[in-house]
């Protein structure tokens, strides 16, 4: 396919993905807004006032970047895993598989569709956060780049989950038993300085800790970890997951017989 045809195929997939999650906005855009608003009220305002400062900032200021990142991660992942698995379940994925659209364009279209939802939800959560606290972004480039790359990474993970999934149960196992624990233990609600050296070392094996802290560094200018390592790690994961996803597609894993 020529670059022009590739662009047309990509933009068609991307537009369809955006149309899908905006069509069902009460299921895709409203729930994270409600959940995050509750986090802000309960953890930020009510409990946060009794906690005091963390990392040199009020607890509300500290927790906001983590909660934005949490919303971006879960929505990027959730969008792609549910959309691509639904396409498999309804067999509408065959529309794409029988077409000349290359595998990497299919993957990119779905992934950036998930990124679009993740970033839109992240933006909405940010606007809600501004009701509770003020945010002055310290490093705008780092903030935008890390949130975008994190969104890409988890959209890719959702894509791979959907390729392997054989039932709707299979698309909820990873978010429930892997993603949620790693997110909650990834420094969203606390600084790892509070932990004993053993738990600090263990926490540093959690990739989400690096992403949350890199984003927090971009917004607040403080981080528990080296931001350079965070970017290197995210880029390495993106490269590895992209290669894995393309390998699965080229071998027709659970897509072709």
């Amino acid at each position: 396919m020529s670059p022009q045809l590739i662009w047309t195929a990509f933009s068609t997939i991307f537009r369809r993905e955006v149309r899908r999650f905006t069509r069902i906005w009460p299921q895709t855009l409203v729930p994270p807004v409600i959940t995050m608003s509750l986090y802000f009220v309960i953890f930020g305002s009510l409990i946060g006032q009794r906690i005091g400062e963390m990392g040199g900032y009020s607890y509300m200021e500290f927790v906001v970047p983590g909660l934005i990142m949490m919303a971006v991660i879960t929505n990027s992942y959730g969008n792609v895993v549910s959309s691509f698995y639904s396409a498999k379940f309804q067999r509408s994925v065959e529309e794409l598989l029988v077409s000349p659209t290359p595998n990497w364009v299919i993957m990119t279209g779905y992934v950036l569709g998930g990124v679009a939802r993740g970033l839109i939800v992240g933006l909405i959560v940010t606007l809600i956060a501004l009701v509770f606290t003020s945010l002055s972004v310290q490093h705008i480039g780092i903030t935008i780049l890390i949130v975008f790359l994190t969104s890409v990474l988890f959209a890719l993970a959702g894509f791979i989950n959907a390729i392997f999934a054989n039932s709707f149960d299979d698309i909820s196992i990873i978010p429930t038993f892997v993603l949620t624990p790693l997110t909650y233990l990834g420094g969203v609600f606390y600084s790892i300085d509070l932990l004993s050296p053993f738990w600090q070392a263990l926490s540093k094996l959690n990739p989400i800790l690096y992403m949350v802290n890199a984003f927090r560094y971009g917004v607040l200018g403080v981080s528990d970890i080296n931001v350079g390592w965070a970017f290197a790690g995210v880029l390495a994961f993106i490269a590895a997951l992209s290669a894995w996803a393309l390998h699965l597609m080229s071998h027709g894993k659970r897509l072709r017989h």
Partner: peptide, 22 residues
């Protein structure tokens, strides 16, 4: 077997296919 999204509109299902062929 039917292999289109049951929740999409008829026009969108057909028109989208054109995009997949560039």
């Amino acid at each position: 077997e039917f292999n289109f999204s049951q929740f999409e509109k008829v026009f969108d299902i057909v028109c989208t296919q054109g995009g997949f062929y560039g």
